[in-house]
Structures are given as C-alpha cells and as structure tokens.
Amino acid sequence: MDVQIALMLAQDGLTNGAIYALLALALVLVFAVTRVIFIPQGEFVAYGALTLAMLQGGSMPATAWLLAGMGALVALIDGATALRNGQTQKLAGVLGWNVGYPLGLVALLTLLPVKDLPLVAQVVLALAVVVPMGPLLYRLVFQPIASAPILILLIVSVAVHVAMVGLGLLFFGAEGQRTPAFSDANFEIGPLMVSGQTVWVVMASVVLILALYQFFERTLYGKALRATAINRNGARLMGISPALAGKLTFFVAALIGALSGVLIAPITTIYYDTGFLIGLKGFVAAIIGGLASYPLAAVGAVLVGLLESFSSFWASAFKEVIVFTLIIPVLLWRSLTTRHVEEEE
C-alpha cells in the first residue's frame, strides 16, 4: 500500500464517517431526550433517498400517502381528545397540521412538474414528505408509552423498524435506486481526486453539526431539549412539555436521517433496507460515545468509517466482522472505566 492509496482510503472512510457521525448524533439525541434506542433511524435514510429518487422518476412517492395516513390517525386521536375536553379552539390546529399539511403536499406534488424542477427543490420536497413522519411517529407510537422501561421502548423501536422496512419494500420495490450527483465537479488535491459529491457530504455534515450545536446552545427549544435530557422530571417541573420535547427530537432525528439519505444517494445504490446497516454503524459510533457524549460519538463515527474503509482493503470478506467486533473492546473499556449506575425505573 502506498501513500496515495492510503489517502484515497482515508477520504472514503471520512465520507462514510461523516454520514455515520450525523446518524450517531441523532441516536444520542433521541436516547438522551426520550430514552428510545431509535433503531428505525436508518429507515429515514432509505426513505429520504428513495423518495427523492421517486420524485426524480416523475412519480408520486408512496411515502406521501403514508404521511397522510399517519396524519389522519393523529388527527383522529388528538381531535377526539380535544373534543372530549371541550377544547374546540384546538381542533383547527390539529386538523390543519395533521390533515391539511399532508394533503396540501400531495396536491403540490401532483400540480408541480416535479420531474423538471431544479435538484434543490426536489430535495426540499423529499424532505417535506419524509421529515414530518418523525414527530407523527413519536405521537403515534412512543408518546403513549413514554414512561415505559427502556427495554419496552427498545422492543417497540424494533417493531417500528420491521414495519418501516416492510412498508419500504411495498413503496419502493426491491430494486435499488441512485440519484444524480449534486455536482459533477472534481477537485485534484495533490495526488488525490476528490469528487464534488464527497465534498458535499463532508461539508453538509460539518454544517449540520455546527447548526445543531448552535440550536442547542442558543435557542430556547434547544435548551429545553438539553434540560429534558439532563433531568426529565426537573424539566417538566420547569414547564417543558415532555410530549413537545419528544416530537421535536424525532423531528430533528428524521431530518438528519432523510438528509443523510439524500446526501449519499448519488454515491451508492440505496435499497429499501440499506438504511438499517448504515444506522447500525451509526449506532456503533453512538455506543463509543456511551450514548451520551456528542463529540465522542462523532469521533467514533469517523473511526468506524476509517476502520471500515481500511478493513475492506485488507480483508474485504471480513469487513463487517471487523467493524462490529469493535463494539466489544469499547463496551469492555466503558464498563471498566465508568461506575455502573442502576437505571432508575
């Protein structure tokens, strides 16, 4: 192996590591705020990428109907609650957001010549379809069992994952999709040939991470989420609604997932079930961060990406084995260095 190959492998590892880092951050965030180990995180990657591919293919993405269906369910549940409590003034908001928005989006997708729109508009539309599923998912599935033990939340999360993969097969079919690159530019840096899309992925990840940092440090909602993560009951006493915190968290997680999907769709072929493996690698990174530390998780993600890239060079048949075996020494090291605290239930 010479320096050039090492550099190329490093570049490849960093690109994948950037995506894993985004997903790891989302996983840490969701776990910290809601105690859910969010296995379906990867599905949002696939949904985002494949919805964009469907839009570009000129067909109505089936995910839009899923959104409408989930919205209708939430409207039914929340509407009934509002009626029972006599809060009729709330009805308009509930209906508007959960029924009006999806239907408006469907109308927009039907009326607009989506196929011929610029890429940016298509990406925005794809995100508009996929991202609201995050908070709707929280409202439908996790909010009713918000105070359940972690194990139950995990089991439910596995169930959601299985359901979403199945729906993905129904919506997108078994074949993979690829979308055109954001830019065809190529940069030569020394001996390295860097494709424009790679730069996009890394830059977008860095920008998103910085934006998240600003969000948590500077905004009221960000601070509310941080407070909930640190002490759920304390935050509640301060007037932070746990339901709102949950929905907001899932919104951010879905946004990160779908955006990651849109970013990597031009680099690789995305299948309806690709997301799981990507999400799992993000999870390994999140574990390195102890499901608590954002910087450690990001470092772990880059580590996973590099390890993956170099191990597929030396022993491609054992790549996954090597990547996932990494979790054992990490867990050992974590359990030896940190004091064990019983989970309070």
């Binding site: 690109t15 690789t268 799981f276 597929s312 048949a317």
Partner: peptide
C-alpha cells in the same frame, strides 16, 4: 468481497 448493502466499495476497487 463486498456486501450488497455496502455504501462504498472504493477500497476493494483500489
């Protein structure tokens, strides 16, 4: 060797 769901086979290609 590579996996069906791999996001990158750059290393093998190299």
């Amino acid at each position: 060797r590579f996996q069906r769901q791999d996001t990158s086979v750059t290393a093998q290609a190299l």
